[in-house]
Each structure stands twice: as structure tokens, then as C-alpha cells.
Design a protein around this nucleic acid. Structure first.
Length: 389
RNA sequence: GUGGGUGUAGCUCAGCUGGUUAGAGCACCAGAUUGUGGAUCUGGGGGUCGCGGGUUCAAAUCCCGUCACUCACCCCA
């Protein structure tokens, strides 16, 4: 009998885990640099809450079940309902604007395909209680800052931006209120007929939408206007977006969207809170990691240790442990093999561990309270007092 | 849930139209006069050929089923 991870779920071996931490580090750094605070919620939520935000149809795509207490529950497929619930509960007490971020693991019961598994880690960033255009620009700038920290520039990625509210209004005046949802969906999927597209998109540009104009200006202040690309096809699939919407893509458009976000001013009210403007985005680790791979931006594997301590002979195992202890107390990453190791082998191990120094603990030096230290780069070797490592 | 493609060693793959004990590279382990460098050389471990059934004297190879992976649809994070 052999076992493997469930379909669409991942094992993180050291290499993958290091990459994941690399990405997460950029997320945390970008969020904190812009004054966002980290939050987290439960991975399991009531089915009602998830339905309240996304509608009945979402149930088919959730890991949903009845718990032993008879509650209808589901693994979260997005963080927004949870954050909305948290905001709604303390809306009055929170100083606005509220700037929160989180890096939850999300689940969705869907057949997997490239860039889309049944589980992923998503960077979720939200601003509540701000309706000024500066908040839209800052949100976008934070997303791009994380990508910049990962080595992605205007050469690799772009932001396609539009305004769902304006598009909806335009559809309504041309085709009637009943056609809004279905038409926006067609726009999102790029399935409009040429005639429809011409009807909707003619003479439709940045200048026609004041918010877009303002967004461009504010993004210029923040140094990210070069990423922007107006694209009226971007309306986001989710019906709750009300204002500016955007998606980040790789320049070649080989992959799915790296991130997507926008303004959803009605959300908090829908979740039982007060009327409060809101905007946010999500950035998943799966597509982002693929993009880093495709563009050669994967970081080199981080060194495992700083110092390898080599016991020469069985009787040096204990002294080596003591040396390791000293080094660790001094803040160095150090380890020693559990059994004596040939020196040649030890140097090979040191190289592959990324160690910068090797400390040889041999009987001759140890008797004098000393050890031999070799710097792997300079190849310089010296005998030192154990106290002065 | 629907359709296409693919499953051979930890990884990347070879294995012609069926034919003896299934191979390579990388990785891993061990040696190359027992205290010094990612090289080289030698040797080694590791595979029920995804799984189950069928056809055949004979199946990694052909057929069916199943599972997994993958691409697309659906839908979206």
C-alpha cells in the first residue's frame, strides 16, 4: 500500500517550502512597508457566511460538510467573507481606514489544472473605510511592490484595469438592466460578439472614466503607472465588485491572472455590517510561482548552515557537540555529524550545506583547548582557542 | 461533472513493428595508502514498467477497465 497527497493538494519538500517562504516573505514585506496589519481567521467557516457573500452556486465548489454538531460548514475558498465578518463585528471600534492583510490557505473543490489546484496560499490585502482614489492606487501599488521584491518588473508583468461600475452602467443603458450580469460575464470571458463589443467599447477610454484618470495620476506618484494598461474587458467574474477592477498578468499572457482585485463597496453591508467602502485583492502562490519559474526569477537555495563542525574520531563526538553548542549560542547556524566523518567527506558535506566555515575538532588540538577553523572561501586555516570562535 | 493527452528508478527520459536476467544521465551511498574541497575514476543500493483484468507460447510494448497526473470546458482564487 502506498499513499500520496490527495488530488490537487501539495507536499512541500524543503525546496518547495523554501520557495514558498521566499514568496511569502515578499508579501509580508510589501504589506508591512505600506502599513498593513496582519490578521487571520478560521479555515473552517459556516456555509451560510460563504453563501451570503458568493451565492448559492458556490456550494458546488466548496469542501462542504455537516460537522458532528450538525452545523453546515465548509473550508474557506476565499478570505473575504471572513475578513468582512470580522470588520462588520467591530466596525464602530476600528479606526478608519482599516488596512489588513493575511496569507491564508484556501480550498476549492474543483478539478485541477495548470495554475489552479484544490488548495493554495493566497495573499489577501484589503482596505476598509476608504473611498478616495488614493486607496485604490495604494492597494495596487502594494501588489506590485511584492512582485518587484520578487524580481518582477514592467518587463514581466502588467496590470489590466477597468471599472466594473461604469461598464455595468454602459451595458444597462444599451441593453437594459436585465442584460447586465449576463453581458458582464460574456465580457469577462471575452465572448462578446464583434458587434456587441463595438457597441460597448467604442470611444471608451481612460478619459471617459474619472476614477481611472485619478488612478493613473495617483499611480504615477507611487511610481507604478508603467504597469497599467486600460482594458475594458476586465470586469472580474464576481458580481460584488462595484468600482475599479484590475488583474495582474504576465506580459506574455501565457498564465492565468497572477492577482486580481478591485472595489466592492457593498460587501460589508451585505455581511450584516454598516455601509462601509471596501477594496482589496488576492494573489495566489501557484500562478506566481509558475511565473517566477518561467521568468528565471527563482532564488538560489538558501544555505542550510553557517558552520560545519567535524569530529575527527569517535572520541571527538562529545567535544564537537560542545563546539556546536558554543556556536549556536553565538547565533550561528551550526551542526555536527552524529558519527565521525572522514575529513574529505566532511568538506564535501560542508560545500553542499552552504557552510562558510569548517571547524575541525581533532584530538591533538583539543588537548590544548583548541580547534582548527577553515574558511571555505579564502581557504585560510587557523588554529584557535575554543573560547574565541 | 465533460472531453483530449500522458503514466518505465527519487528526478529527466530511452526501450523499433510483442521475444531471455528492463537501461542511461542526474541524484543518493561506499571506496580510490585511515586529518582537507562541489572534479575524476570504480563499485553499490534502488523499479510488482501506476493498478486490475484480457489476448498470446511470450506483454513495459496490443485491448478493456480503473486510478493518478496533465491540458481544455465549466467556474473562478
Amino acid at each position: 500500500m502506498s499513499f500520496q497527497a490527495l488530488p490537487g493538494f501539495r507536499d512541500f519538500y524543503p525546496e518547495e517550502m523554501a520557495l514558498r517562504r521566499h514568496v511569502e516573505a515578499a508579501w509580508h514585506a510589501a504589506a508591512k512597508a505600506a502599513g498593513f496589519e496582519e490578521v487571520e481567521g478560521p479555515p473552517l467557516e459556516s456555509l451560510e457566511l460563504l453563501k451570503a457573500k458568493s451565492g448559492e452556486a458556490i456550494v458546488e465548489e466548496l469542501y462542504a460538510f455537516t460537522d458532528k454538531g450538525g452545523r453546515e460548514v465548509a473550508l474557506r475558498a476565499e478570505l473575504t467573507p471572513t475578513v468582512g465578518r470580522m470588520i462588520a463585528a467591530r466596525a464602530a471600534a476600528l479606526r478608519k481606514p482599516v488596512k489588513w492583510y493575511a496569507t491564508p490557505q484556501l480550498f476549492r473543490y474543483q478539478r485541477q489544472q495548470r495554475g489552479r489546484l484544490r488548495e493554495h496560499i493566497q495573499w489577501n490585502v484589503d482596505i476598509f473605510g476608504a473611498s478616495e482614489i488614493g486607496s485604490d492606487a495604494e492597494l495596487l501599488a502594494v501588489a506590485l511592490d511584492a512582485l518587484r521584491r520578487l524580481g518582477l518588473t514592467e518587463k514581466e508583468v502588467k496590470v489590466r484595469v477597468s471599472h466594473r461600475g461604469v461598464m455595468a452602467e454602459r451595458v444597462r443603458t444599451r441593453f437594459g438592466a436585465d442584460a447586465v450580469e449576463s453581458t458582464l460575464r460574456l465580457i469577462d470571458k471575452g465572448e462578446l460578439t464583434p458587434a456587441q463589443a463595438a457597441e460597448l467599447l467604442v470611444a471608451f477610454d481612460v478619459a471617459a472614466i474619472p476614477e481611472l484618470d485619478g488612478l493613473y495620476a495617483a499611480c504615477e506618484d507611487l511610481g507604478v503607472e508603467g504597469f497599467l494598461e486600460f482594458d475594458p474587458r476586465i470586469v472580474r467574474g464576481l458580481a460584488y465588485y462595484t468600482g475599479l477592477v484590475w488583474e495582474i498578468f504576465d506580459r506574455g499572457e501565457k498564465l492565468r491572472a497572477v492577482a486580481g482585485g478591485g472595489r466592492y463597496d457593498m460587501l460589508i453591508e451585505r455581511l450584516g455590517g454598516p455601509q462601509m467602502p471596501a477594496l482589496g485583492f488576492g494573489m495566489g502562490d501557484v500562478v506566481l510561482t509558475e511565473l517566477l519559474r518561467d521568468t528565471g526569477k527563482l532564488p538560489p537555495g538558501p544555505p542550510k548552515i553557517d558552520v560545519l563542525v567535524v569530529p575527527i574520531g569517535e572520541e571527538m563526538l562529545a567535544p564537537a557537540r560542545q563546539v556546536v553548542r558554543r556556536l549556536r549560542l553565538a547565533g550561528e547556524r551550526a551542526e555536527a555529524p552524529y558519527s565521525p566523518m572522514k575529513v574529505g567527506k566532511a568538506f564535501q558535506l560542508a560545500e553542499s550545506s552552504g557552510a562558510r566555515r569548517v571547524v575541525l575538532v581533532g584530538p591533538d588540538e583539543w588537548r590544548l583547548g583548541k580547534v582548527k577553523v577553515k574558511d571555505l572561501r579564502s581557504r585560510e586555516e587557523s588554529v584557535r582557542e575554543v573560547d574565541k570562535l
